[in-house]
């Protein structure tokens, strides 16, 4: 826990289907070593995966708590049937932790009680933000495709604390159909959990062999890694105080340390970029949305 800093670092939920033990050990190490304030735990992408992590959830939450990290319980982004709704309802009803709604139905269940709203709920403007705040949202992670001007306008109105995703593959779309299964000529109902084979998603290239996207079960992510280390100071000037890192198989402790160091003015963004590139195997970086461009673009310099 980093005391006395006005900038909060959050670790978003693991979006991928990691082996349960790996998932547990990842969070244990994060608890013990990473300079993070808040850690999100919970399945967001596919309800079929949730049972695998359930046996370890209590241990993970306890370890994070004893390391003085705030725990937020993340929930499903796409809820299509009663079984999935029941999964979310169980999380909402049986916890004192802050719950993060990733679907409007979950925000409805959390009405009148302090909660968080994740990046999968469409909050694009002040009117919606104000409504969600009246509903009980005290913290909102903004959709990934917002440009700087929108973030600035929302930060100005700020009836809730705003958080911006600054690292990781961008969640671009979610579907009823499982693409991971489809890649293996399987259906979603009989998927054999093939998504566990790809800890950062399944590579998707164009016909020209250009790396393009990553498939994670029913989710499509960017191939490039969002990296806004160079945009942190502008975001802080807007009044943004919370920054979210999305977990990958690279060393998230090192990546968290790099962002922490930039936020504390102990490391230049360029140096952080190099450290981040080292942990992501030199993957292309992206921050185009923030700069009002295609999301895949990367602007090295700062906005202003």
């Amino acid at each position: 826990m980093v005391k006395g800093s006005s900038a909060h670092l959050t670790l978003g939920p693991v979006l991928f289907n990691w082996a349960p033990e790996r998932w547990r050990d990842f969070y244990f190490r994060i608890a013990d070593e990473a300079p993070l304030d808040t850690v999100c735990v919970g399945e967001v992408v596919c309800s079929k995966r949730a049972p695998f992590f359930a046996p370890y959830l209590a241990d993970v939450v306890e370890r994070l708590g004893s390391a003085d990290k705030e725990v937020v319980l993340s929930t499903l982004a796409l809820i299509m049937n009663e079984r999935e709704m029941a999964l979310v309802r169980e999380t909402v009803e049986n916890t004192d932790f802050l719950v993060e709604a990733n679907d409007i139905s979950t925000a409805a269940l959390l009405k009148g009680r302090p909660h968080a709203v994740g990046p999968f709920v469409n909050i694009y403007n002040e009117g919606t933000l104000a409504y969600m705040a009246r509903n009980g949202a005290e913290r909102v992670t903004l959709p990934v495709e917002l440009a700087a001007s929108s973030i600035a306008a929302l930060a100005k109105s700020a009836p809730a604390e705003l958080e911006v995703m600054v690292f990781g593959r961008l969640p671009l779309a979610i579907s009823a159909r499982c693409y991971h299964a489809r890649c293996h000529n399987l259906s979603r109902d009989n998927c054999q959990f093939v998504c566990e084979k790809n800890p950062d998603g399944f590579d998707v290239d164009t016909l020209d062999g250009e790396p393009f996207l990553a498939v994670n079960g029913v989710q499509a992510l960017s191939h490039a890694y969002c990296n806004m280390a160079g945009d942190l100071s502008v975001l802080r000037d807007f009044g943004i105080r919370r920054f979210r890192l999305s977990p990958h198989s690279g060393d998230m402790v090192r990546i968290a340390e790099a962002f922490r160091a930039v936020l504390d003015n102990k490391m230049a963004p360029e140096e952080a970029n190099a450290a981040i590139a080292g942990e992501t195997g030199g993957m292309p970086l992206a921050n185009g949305y923030f700069h009002g461009k295609a999301g895949a673009a990367f602007e090295g310099g700062s906005l202003m």
């Binding site: 982004a77 796409l78 999968f120 469409n122 694009y124 959709p143 990934v144 495709e145 961008l170 671009l172 779309a173 979610i174 579907s175 009823a176 159909r177 996207l213 499509a220 960017s222 185009g288 949305y289 009002g292 461009k293 295609a294 999301g295 895949a296 673009a297």
Partner: peptide, 21 residues
């Protein structure tokens, strides 16, 4: 639409323009 409608940023990822915005 193959993706859940209103929750797709594929278009803006490569063009900067999306259905939502």
């Amino acid at each position: 639409c193959v993706m859940a409608e209103g929750r797709c940023a594929l278009s803006s990822y490569v063009t900067g323009e999306s259905p939502n915005i």
